[in-house]
Design a protein around this nucleic acid. Structure first.
Length: 576
RNA sequence: GACUUGCUAGCUCAGCUGGUAGAGCACAUCCCUUUUAAGGAUGGGGUCCAGGGUUCGAACCCCUGGCAAGUCACCA
């Protein structure tokens, strides 16, 4: 462990600095020589923000601002720059003789013009004014260096039409260095501000009804509540395997047993499965459970909640997503899954047994295998042929019992369950049940899952004996609902990729940079003994491939350690 | 996991049939007191993702690997 950290540290320490980085480090030293601390400890008494000034412009009013220099236009004794704070950008104007009224013009001539760069964080005190072109600006009277930036920032320029030039767009760099993305791409910041507003709005909705926000374990001895492959970890002191939760359902229901009327949790869940533009290994789900309710009530509740969230966050229920316009105005359509299948395939699969369903799948060109039970087959048909048709928010209800081991059987048909999934833009957004609270039925369903597991289904649920024990004490009739927060944010921010709504999407680690060239070392070691050698002899002795030889020699040449001398056909290498 | 595409300066990208690596912005120097994606002039800056192969010669062709994006499969 220690060695890994040491290696990483070393590679950072030995990083070759670019010309611009070296210059910035030089400026850092020069600032210190002038007695300016480039990383001061004092608080800076900010009393305004860029946005506030633009919205409530008052000619001549004094303001104190802090932010990052995003561009500079230096014209001799006067300069313009853009300052970006948390609220946005504002232009600042620096006039040499206004900033430095006395004899000493160092602050303008040296500090601002030479030692500061784009990306540095400064504090200013100055007065509001409008330029001749009419742009609201602040004339700087005092300037404080707050943080020197040592790496050059991508410079994104936006023209009058709002078109970005040289935008920082490479997804890999944007996700790995989200901080840079947030600095230079204001739209990205908006997405995450919106994400928080969405969550806040939902929380308000639940709290207004008196439901309790709770926290349940992420490290679980039995990963329950969903069908998914978990991450496994190990607790040293307990010497036991633990799993990162794949859902928090079973814990929240234990709390309903415990006597809470309504509990909810915004939960990070973890699933050890593939990644793509809609799946990240860790993702956020909101789950809520309310006692003495059923899934019909939960449908009303869910559509009201979404109507509120979209209105709060967007000011409207209509959302543009890709090419579709989605309207979250309640009520949403409600379609039983068997009717959906009948409508989109023409087959009435309600009374069919497994061989008949297999036959239907074959006719519909759906791949099947022998391990599939009735529920899985129906789910496949729906997933392949129906799901994509539900663009507007639609509750698909009454799923087959085999697919829903935690859901109460339908009051009118024991082959179905009281379950709904909310489909939006052809994708599942939320999932809800009238919760199964019959402990004997629950144990039986778990045992069915065990059989699936023995058949080779590695996503089948584990038996959670403690959960069954809890139900044996009695859980009131309850309805529960889970909603994928990341997906919801995608819809409401019109992003097709989950990475765009996660601040730090999962990425493979960056490769460590190679420290020192082996080829250079090899050649140098041989050459050191001889001072001067015939080129081919040295090359042969080094035993390097052509490419490595070439790189090694170029490297040594660059470092000023060795040089090739050409004399007619004779080529020799000598130390410098 | 499979397939496709990409990886060249701090950023965005060119780079022809294999023949000494280019532009814009950024940066440096000098000039310039209300400019606005870009004031003017001059200049510096490269492990062409890594490794191997072919070749007199590879950013370019071939092989292997890395990372990313997209599509598909699985899943929420």
């Amino acid at each position: 462990m220690k060695r890994i950290f040491a290696a990483k540290f070393f590679s950072i320490m030995s990083r070759v600095l670019s010309e611009q980085e070296q210059l910035r480090r030089q400026s850092l030293e020069d600032l210190r020589k002038l007695g300016i601390d480039p990383y001061p400890a004092d608080l800076f008494p900010v009393d305004s923000h860029a946005k506030k000034i633009k919205e409530n412009y008052e000619e001549g009013k004094e303001v104190t601002l802090a932010g990052r220099i995003m561009s500079r236009r230096i014209m001799g004794k006067a300069s313009f720059a853009e300052l970006q704070d948390a609220s946005g950008k504002i232009q600042i104007y620096l006039n040499r003789d206004e900033l430095c009224p006395g004899e000493d013009k160092t602050l303008y001539n040296d500090v601002f013009k030479k030692l500061l760069d784009i990306g540095d964080i400064i504090g200013i005190k100055g007065t509001q004014f409008k330029t001749q072109v009419g742009e609201i600006s602040v004339q700087v009277k005092e300037l404080t260096v707050l943080t020197k930036s040592l790496r050059p920032l991508p410079v994104v320029k936006t023209d009058k039409d709002g078109k970005a030039h040289d935008a920082f767009t490479d997804p890999e760099q944007r996700y790995r260095q989200r901080y840079v993305d947030l600095i230079v791409n204001p739209k990205v910041k908006e997405v995450f501000e919106k994400r928080t507003r969405i969550i806040n709005s939902m929380r308000e909705f639940f709290n207004a009804k008196g439901y309790l926000e709770v926290e349940t374990p992420i490290l679980q001895p039995i990963p329950g509540g969903a069908a998914a492959r978990p991450f496994v970890t190990h607790h040293n002191a307990l010497n036991t395997e633990l799993y990162l939760r794949i859902a928090n359902e079973l814990y929240l229901k234990r709390l309903i047993v415990g006597g809470f009327d309504g509990v909810y949790e915004f939960a990070k869940d973890f699933r050890n499965e593939g990644m793509d533009r809609t799946h990240n290994p860790e993702f956020t789900v909101m789950e809520i459970y309310v006692a003495y309710k059923d899934y019909n009530w939960m449908m009303d509740f869910t559509e009201k909640m979404l109507e509120k969230v979209t209105t709060d966050v967007l000011g409207a229920t209509k959302v543009t997503f890709g090419e579709n316009e989605i309207n979250f105005k309640a009520p949403f359509k409600r379609v039983p899954i068997l009717e959906a299948i009948k409508e989109h395939t023409g087959y009435d699969v309600a009374e069919m047994n497994v061989p008949e369903l297999m036959e239907v799948c074959k006719k519909l060109d759906i791949e099947v295998d022998d391990s599939m039970g009735k529920g899985k087959l129906i789910d496949e048909i729906f997933g392949e042929k129906c799901e994509a048709n539900y663009i507007q928010p639609t509750f698909i209800t009454d799923y087959p019992v085999e697919m829903s081991p935690l859901c109460k059987k339908h009051r009118d048909n024991p082959n179905l369950t009281e379950r709904f999934e909310l489909m939006v833009n052809g994708k599942e957004l939320a999932n809800a049940y009238t919760e199964l609270n019959d402990p004997i039925d629950q144990l039986g369903r778990f045992q069915e899952q065990l059989k699936l597991s023995e058949k080779g289904d590695d996503e089948a649920m584990f038996i959670d004996q403690d959960f069954v024990r809890a139900l044996e004490y009695g859980m009131p009739p309850t309805s529960g609902m889970g909603i994928g927060i990341d997906r919801l944010v995608m819809f409401l921010t019109n992003n097709a990729s989950i990475q765009e709504v996660l601040l730090f999407p999962q990425m493979k680690p960056e490769k460590k940079s190679v420290e020192l060239s082996e080829a250079e070392k090899t050649i140098f070691e041989i050459l050191k003994k001889e001072e001067k050698m015939e080129l081919n002899e040295l090359k042969e002795k080094s035993g390097l491939s052509n490419k490595q030889w070439d790189k090694g020699m170029k490297g040594l040449n660059k470092h000023g350690l060795a040089k090739v001398e050409v004399d007619g056909d004779d080529k020799s290498v000598h130390l410098l």
